[in-house]
């Protein structure tokens, strides 16, 4: 069978680090709410307050605490920051293009407002992405979907995400086989003319996937599909789990409150 075999869900579950820590054991939907609330608190931190940097450090320490509790190595979380690169570029541009009073840094004339805004965008984005990475590292993607379903995300979206997880490897395998077939006949992707070959290949992959979608739909109808993916028994989540999960955004809220009272 070859391609895409035994890779543990391929790219999609690559973020997940299996474990049994208290963070792993929390119900996924409580963790989702907690991360969302944490990101909200982070975003609410006023950009121009003098104590903002201290608050950012506080938030970061909270996240590191959760990571330590979950036994996730910091290096693992830092890798999640790759998705943030576009924000970094945007934030780095701000000091150059913003108006207002300017300061000289290393011979460059930079906007003070731009520095503050850029720095704060960077800090807020980094903290939110770190929190999301922690969520992904401690929650199996399938559990995450159950969580989304429980939080009443529209069923169609949950189904699309479910199928994405299931078929990422299948489509990836097809892609790999097409690549092998091309290269076996002497194709090399270096020349500009290669686009003429790769374009139609992408098209044919799309058509294959579309046809597979139709066949899967038939298989689903044949087993009584009525528009919803049936879920199994739903665990009862007590106040204690919610309290455990929400302790992160609550602590972040406390940091924010302390900052605005003392600062």
């Amino acid at each position: 069978m070859g391609a895409g075999h035994g890779t543990g869900g391929g790219g999609i579950s690559a973020m997940y680090v299996p474990g049994h820590s208290p963070v792993h054991r929390l119900e996924p939907h409580t963790k989702l709410v907690a991360v969302l609330a944490f990101a909200l608190v982070v975003v609410l931190t006023p950009v121009h307050a003098g104590w903002a940097p201290a608050a950012y450090v506080g938030f970061l320490l909270l996240l590191l605490g959760v990571a330590a509790l979950a036994r996730i190595r910091p290096g693992r979380i830092v890798r999640g920051l790759v998705v943030e690169v576009p924000f970094v570029l945007f934030a780095a541009l701000l000091p150059f293009v913003s108006r207002g009073p300017r300061v000289e840094v290393l011979g460059l004339s930079l906007s003070e407002n731009g520095l503050a805004a850029g720095g704060s965008i960077l800090a807020k984005a980094t903290l939110s992405v770190l929190a999301a990475t922690l969520l992904a590292a401690t929650t199996d993607p399938r559990a995450l979907l159950r969580g989304l379903d429980r939080l009443r995300l529209p069923s169609v979206l949950v189904q699309i995400l479910t199928f994405m997880i299931r078929y990422a490897d299948v489509v990836g395998g097809e892609l790999a086989r097409m690549k092998v077939a091309r290269e076996s006949r002497g194709f090399r992707a270096r020349r500009v003319g290669a686009l003429k070959v790769l374009g139609p290949a992408a098209g044919s992959l799309f058509i294959r996937s579309y046809e597979r979608g139709e066949r899967v739909h038939l298989a689903m109808l044949s087993r009584g599909y009525t528009g919803r993916l049936p879920t199994g028994p739903v665990a009862v989540v007590g106040g204690r789990s919610w309290a455990a999960a929400l302790s992160l955004p609550l602590a972040a809220g406390a940091v924010l409150a302390a900052g605005s009272l003392l600062g």
């Binding site: 479910t162 597979r212 038939l218 298989a219 087993r223």
Partner: peptide, 24 residues
């Protein structure tokens, strides 16, 4: 169906085998 990858669309084997009975 012929291609088991078309037939097995749920994330785990157990959920897939349960798909039909739950729809019932």
């Amino acid at each position: 169906f012929q291609d088991p990858d078309d037939q097995l669309f749920m994330p785990t084997v157990g959920e897939d085998v349960a798909f039909g009975p739950r729809n019932l």
